[in-house]
Design a protein around this nucleic acid. Structure first.
Length: 410
DNA sequence: GATCCACAGGAAATAGTGGCTT
DNA sequence: AAGCCACTATTTCCTGTGGATC
């Protein structure tokens, strides 16, 4: 029943997000600056706090991991240097409280982990400082996706001022904050901003040429019968330069995102394998783009709340009735009706607006702002952004599936 | 340029969940 | 068990917005 038929991949892993290349192309300047910012650490001095920003897929996290790996390795050469690095992704953590608790858990063994509820904030900080002091030496704390921390910035104050507030005496801490939202910096209170953003490092987007170089570098390792002939050219029986150009253009299109380009390359190659093709062709890339989009949307839809799903379904039925684009207040009655059919109490209009906004955010709906002045004021109009079949498929994988099965046709 | 429209979206209040401390 | 704590999801209330119209 199962059989290996892959003629494409030598090593698929090379295209995955976790893969760490030994050389980062197009990031020479950034690595150079990063290195100088981290220099004090190796001297055993108080580390700099570093704020790193740049769009998604420009290597912020990967380069950081790479730098820290080297830093740790080189630190071992010096007996008087005790270096410990902590890496925390703040996705899903929206308060200082949760970050503090998560940091405590990073230090602790699985059996001693704490809950992220119930403690007094002060107590939580004490626990963190205790852990830090127990470890001692120099500690680099990396907070990735730091902009998810929205509610308050006390964690930064506590960490950057821990020493002068005598919370810690045995250890030195340096914070590396990573954000893809530069404006986050300006939401910080002034005293936190100046200390947290002591050193700043901006990662620019990759252009198509740089992305091509990256794709060439990875392709050589990932595919059979492929070799690099110059920095941006390959000779390959599996994959053509034109295919790589397509992937590079896709990544460069909106944000210079290497991850997007690599994802597309992998998706295309997966499709080629699936089709038992001998090579990755341009048509596979086109299919790949559609697949990636579908995946993103499905993921987005899966992440919505139940009422988000109901609102989406409402929009879907309006779309099928050719009533889109439709303004918020015209969505309302049908939403209320459908909600009741599903057996749920409808949420308030205010809340429904939030849900609609999320649909637009996820990319499944389009919004247009309208303003008819004194003849009708301003409002937003929504319509589905993609085929209704696709949306319906995604909705069937949610808690609405039973409800949807019960209806023969929309 | 003042007025008006109708909603967007911020802010505060409330309800309910679940964990910690004593 | 009572009194904390923070969380999420929500409702209620209300101010702000920007173009059309006068």
């Amino acid at each position: 029943m199962f059989e290996r038929e892959n003629k494409i991949y030598k090593k698929r892993k090379v295209l995955q997000n976790e893969y760490q290349p030994e050389e980062f192309l197009g990031r020479k300047n950034e690595i150079q600056k990063y290195k100088s910012h981290l220099k004090p650490v190796i001297n055993g001095w108080q580390p700099n706090n570093i704020f790193i920003y740049g769009k998604t897929g420009v290597g912020k996290t990967a380069v950081t991991r790479y730098m820290l790996k080297h830093l740790e390795k080189d630190a071992q050469k010096y007996d008087d240097l005790n270096l410990n690095t902590i890496f925390l992704n703040c996705e899903g953590l929206n308060s200082s409280y949760q970050v503090t608790g998560s940091l405590v858990n990073k230090y602790r063994k699985p059996e001693n982990k704490i809950n992220l509820k119930g403690y007094d904030s002060r107590k939580l900080y004490e626990m963190l400082f205790q852990e830090i002091e127990k470890t001692g030496g120099t500690q680099i704390i990396v907070l990735d996706e730091i902009d998810h921390i929205q509610k308050d910035d006390s964690i930064f104050y506590q960490l950057t001022r821990a020493r002068e507030n005598n919370e810690i005496t045995e250890s030195h801490i340096g914070i590396i904050g990573i954000s893809n939202d530069f404006s986050f910096r300006d939401t910080l209170s002034p005293k936190v901003k100046s200390s947290l953003c002591e050193k700043e490092l901006q990662f620019p987007a990759y252009d198509a040429y740089e992305l091509k170089k990256i794709l060439v570098q990875r392709s050589e390792k990932a595919f059979y019968n492929t070799e690099k002939t110059s920095e941006n050219k390959i000779n390959s029986e599996i994959i053509s330069g034109a295919v790589l150009d397509l992937c590079a253009a896709y990544g460069a299109k909106d944000s210079g995102d290497a991850r997007q380009a690599l994802d597309l390359l992998m998706e295309s190659a997966d499709i080629a394998v699936d089709k038992k093709s001998d090579a990755v062709k341009e048509e596979h890339v086109e299919k790949g783009k559609i697949e990636l989009k579908r995946g993103r949307i499905e993921e987005g839809i899966a992440g919505l709340t139940m009422h988000g799903h109901i609102v989406l379904y409402t929009l879907l039925t309006l779309e099928r009735d050719n009533e889109t684009p439709v303004r918020t207040r015209d969505i309302r009655p049908r939403y209320t009706a459908i909600s009741k059919k599903v057996g749920e109490e409808p949420i308030s209009p205010r809340r429904m607006r939030d849900r609609l906004g999320e649909l637009a955010m996820v990319g499944v709906a389009d919004v247009t702002e309208k303003n008819l002045g004194s003849r009708g004021g301003s409002f937003r109009e929504y319509s589905l952004n993609m085929s209704d079949e696709l949306v319906l498929e995604a909705l069937k994988k949610t808690e609405l599936s039973d409800f949807l099965k019960g209806r023969k046709e929309i």
